[in-house]
Design a protein around this nucleic acid. Structure first.
Length: 415
DNA sequence: TCTGGGGTCCTAGGACCC
DNA sequence: TCTGGGGTCCTAGGACCC
């Protein structure tokens, strides 16, 4: 049996932790640049607001209904997420942290999973003030569905168990096929062509038919829905690729300004690489003009380069990235987004040495680590490459809540 | 004016090898 | 006349997730 612990409207709930006055109110959280809605409370949903909708399109409704709006504050969400995870780990042995707001636990051998999960749910609420819903079922995909029921039907009191074929059939008949984990837009369109509307319809097809039409992924989902577990444990351990990118609040035409941004992205990637003790030998730089303005000249390019020696050195990666940028940059275009990806990541313990390497790597590593330590203590960007500019983003995020839990001077004051 | 950011896995097709 | 077949590796692109 798997349990899935899923935080309710997580980002919005995080904002409510420090704003109890907003507890039962409509609250929305915006993406970077205050672009679009990425999280919203039940009350906001009831007013017709949808995830993904651009902020500027709903400003009227927001005013009219007094909806509380926040720019995203990922430092806060990350911190509260790790507190929730710690509480789960206190109670369960096998915990798979699947995303910032979800974790699976193994409930095999648990005699009374419902009271176990109800207790856990109460503890998380008391300890972190984050509401969670928990679904319990023999596979992860069914546990997801159980969580859906736990969230949407009050009678479950936040915990829903699917442990018999009767319950499974009842649940699957109520779940539309596009709500199933692993079935996205394209696949549900295709399912519709075959008359499949609910998860139950899908399970009535034959395995061979499923394999033929929906390949291995489809068959896996099909099996999971039958109650046969076949998804591997998600291991968040080491990332295979790391990406840092941003959409700019104002488009950038100047290559030097772009270079500044790209240098910042590289530094972020390199830092994350060192943090997981990894090195990368493939560096990709990409720049995009705005897809939403088709009347303007469009240029989208992502250019990967292979490095002789896998590295996590900020200086070396920056040097390469800027060369790539100058190679793909075209004058006269207004770039709206850029980013850097480091991929093919391996452990830094197993780096293939290059006989003709001109860089003193042990020395460089010490330098990078010293920079990381100083920035950790005195704030991001205290020490940075001149290429990174003054560290100002030019990205819009006007409605952010304070970093209540990670910045001493932003800690909550009680009058 | 204004539409996120960060990941994973799978597949098809080409290059290359014997 | 007749022009193989099977395997591996790599990459780009698509689809999915939160």
């Amino acid at each position: 049996m798997y349990g899935l612990i899923d935080c309710d409207s997580f980002f919005a709930s995080c904002e409510q932790v420090f704003r109890p006055d907003l507890r039962h109110s409509p609250v929305i959280v915006l993406s970077g640049n205050d672009g679009c809605v990425i999280a919203l409370t039940r009350e906001a949903k009831a007013l017709g607001i949808k995830r993904g909708i651009p902020y500027f399109k709903i400003k009227k409704e927001i005013e009219c209904h007094h909806i509380a709006v926040f720019s995203s504050n990922f430092t806060l969400y990350g911190d509260l997420s790790s507190r929730v995870v710690r509480m789960i780990m206190n109670r369960a042995d096998e915990v798979e942290v699947y995303s910032i707001d979800e974790a699976f636990i193994n409930l095999i051998g648990e005699k009374d999973p419902i009271s176990f999960c109800s207790r856990l749910r109460r503890e998380i609420w008391q300890g972190v003030n984050i509401p969670v819903s928990i679904g319990i079922a023999p596979t992860r995909t069914l546990a997801k569905i159980a969580t859906d029921f736990a969230k949407h039907y009050k009678g479950y009191e936040g915990v829903c168990l699917i442990d018999t074929d009767e319950k499974r059939e009842k649940a699957l008949r109520l779940i539309a096929i596009d709500e199933v984990w692993g079935i996205g837009r394209q696949l549900s369109k295709k399912m519709a062509l075959y008359g499949i509307k609910t998860a139950w319809d899908f399970t009535q097809k034959k395995a061979s038919w499923t394999r033929k039409n929906f390949k291995i992924q489809g068959l896996r989902t099909w099996n999971e829905l039958q109650g046969i577990s076949c998804l591997d444990a998600y291991s968040p351990a080491e990332k295979q690729s790391i990406c840092t990118s941003r959409t700019f609040s104002h488009p950038i035409a100047d290559v030097e300004l772009l270079a500044e941004r790209v240098a910042v992205f590289v530094a972020a990637c390199a830092k994350k690489l060192r943090f997981q003790n990894g090195v990368s030998d493939t560096l990709t730089v990409f720049i995009y003009t705005s897809r939403h303005q088709q009347d303007q000249p469009q240029h989208q390019e992502a250019f990967p380069v292979h490095l002789e020696t896998a590295t996590n050195d900020t200086l070396e990666l920056t040097h390469m990235a800027l060369q790539v940028l100058r190679h793909i940059y075209r004058k006269g275009y207004l770039y709206k987004k850029a980013g850097v990806i480091v991929s093919n990541i391996t452990s830094s313990n197993t780096v293939q040495q290059n006989l003709f390497d001109k860089i003193n790597r042990p020395q460089r590593l010490k330098l990078n680590q010293a920079i990381d330590r100083i920035n950790e203590k005195l704030g991001q960007n205290t020490i940075r490459l001149a290429r990174q500019g003054n560290g100002e983003w030019g990205s819009k995020s006007e409605l952010s809540s304070p970093h209540y839990t990670t910045q001493l001077d932003e800690i909550m004051r009680i009058k």
